[in-house]
């Protein structure tokens, strides 16, 4: 009898959502952060598209060949690539729960990041000194927007890195700190991926124009 009533009830549409079971803290953080990175990817895609459209409009101003020093760009790329691998080492030592080694690798990563920013700012200063300011031409406006946005991301990555080093120093490699370090790892490697696009499309293709 009861079976019959249940089956008739089941055939009726049910208008309620079954309660979700509990999620452990941070279970969805990595996916959420990945989706943030994808949205960031769209920002860079639009900036790349803008540069692609405006990159040839020099307004009789300086062209890439007059401005770019590929030796400097190669050095810069090396810095970022090295910081990527040292962050990888930081993650490996984190998995072995070695606080000292993790902190050391994070510090080295930060130094490479600082070197990258320093070289980039030197390049910008040199360009602006020569009169190649963002106002000069559409090419330079889109150049400074694209490369500057990447540099700004690296800057915030460095702020985040410093914050996490303080966190790890104070609280150790607790679960929350490991999760944060993994998020920063994705952020940092993602910035390296964007840089591949920058040195290819902006610098190398610029010299070939």
């Amino acid at each position: 009898m009861t079976v019959a009533t249940v089956s008739t009830q089941n055939s009726e549409p049910v208008f309620h959502v079954i309660d979700e079971h509990a999620h452990p803290e941070g279970a969805s953080t990595m996916l959420g952060f990945w989706i943030y990175l994808m949205s960031d990817c769209l920002i860079f895609a639009i900036l790349f598209a803008t540069f692609g459209v405006l990159g040839g409009n020099y307004a009789a101003g300086p062209a890439p060949k007059d401005l770019f020093d590929l030796n400097l760009v190669a050095l810069n790329t090396t810095m970022l690539l090295l910081s990527s691998i040292t962050y990888g080492f930081a993650m490996l030592t984190m998995e072995k729960s070695k606080i000292g080694a993790t902190q050391a690798w994070l510090a080295i990563t930060g130094l490479f990041g600082l070197a990258f920013l320093g070289i980039e700012l030197t390049e910008f200063a040199h360009m602006i000194h020569e009169g190649a300011t963002p106002q000069r031409s559409a090419f330079l406006s889109s150049f400074f927007t694209l490369v500057g946005t990447h540099g700004l991301h690296v800057t915030f990555g460095l702020v985040w890195l410093t914050t996490l080093m303080v966190q790890v120093a104070r609280f150790g490699l607790i679960e929350a700190n490991r999760r944060r370090l993994m998020c920063l790892s994705m952020f940092w490697h993602f910035l390296d991926v964007v840089w591949i696009g920058v040195f290819t499309f902006v610098y190398l293709m610029g010299m070939l124009r």
Partner: peptide, 12 residues
């Protein structure tokens, strides 16, 4: 669910 954090980590 217990493994979720670990899955994403999938470290090299």
């Amino acid at each position: 669910h217990g493994h979720h954090a670990h899955d994403a980590a999938a470290h090299g």
